[in-house]
Amino acid sequence: MSADRGGPAQPILIVNGLRKYFPLRGPLGTIDAHVQAVDGIGFDVRKGETLGVVGESGCGKSTTARLLMRLIEPDAGEVIFDGDPIGHRGISIRELRRNMQMVFQDSYASLNPRHTATEEIVFGLRVHGMGSKQAREQAHASLRLVGLEPGQFGDRYPHEMSGGQRQRVNIARGIALNPRVLILDESVSALDKSVQAQVLNLLADLKDRLNLTYVFISHDLNVVHHVSDRVLVMYLGKVVEIGPVERIYGDAAHPYTRALFASRLSMDPALRVGAAPLSGDPPNPVRPPSGCRFRTRCSLATQACAASEPLLREIAPGHQAACHALTGEMADAA
């Protein structure tokens, strides 16, 4: 593992003004419009924490993960890894990827169908210059760490394993390079509940043993609650709220966060949800509303919300939200 250079107080990741628009091409190849997938977001990830990222489809959480890994190039903004910017002035993308790994949602699609579990892990190690014998040993050690006996599972192909076992292989590949940050993009969402619990326990163990920092992306609010120290809420490419998990889950400030939590299923037939907190679907990220992007579905919206975009403001120590109603810019709301 590479050294912790910035000290414990230095955030492992600082994200500033990150933006990514995907062009939509018309039939003649001209750019007709842009999907505003991620639009100027900023946050930090502290060493050793689990930052949960929640939001609905199209809010930009997966794009954010890919931007952090530099699998796609940002249009603007910077990512600082433990004090070093990414690029020619700081650490290389290759170095970044050695220190930061990602586990995808689809355990089947993210494994090469022609590679055995061991081969899949060895590939990444060889990329970083490890000899083939040593790489095999390291791969087996990683498999053991995720609870798969290399003698039994090392030579299996993806189709010869269950969903939970495949996701363990994906995690083993992620930790084999001894990264400091693991990005988990909906990594347990596709698993059956009984298997999901096993994998969540495994992730908790690995985090302690390997001193990892997690960025845990999920649409499942219960899972995020279970694993996170802090939670980031996204809506249509913007960060709407970020704060400690107990604040976000206990005393959410942003109307969207509150509606999202009120949409959770009760888990108790005696306490069924009586009315849906929001109506309709999230708007199209190609043409987001002006000002506050949530205003079209917000019960508190006024003209001020259409006129200007609310910025993230500190409303309690470590707890920020972006809403005019909270910062007094809207007269006497709620």
Binding site: G164, V195, A197, A204, H226
Partner: peptide, 19 residues
Amino acid sequence: STVSASTRGERLASIPGGP
């Protein structure tokens, strides 16, 4: 093994193995 608000920070009681 179903995650809920009350399981926060605890180890989940999972069913071992798979179907």
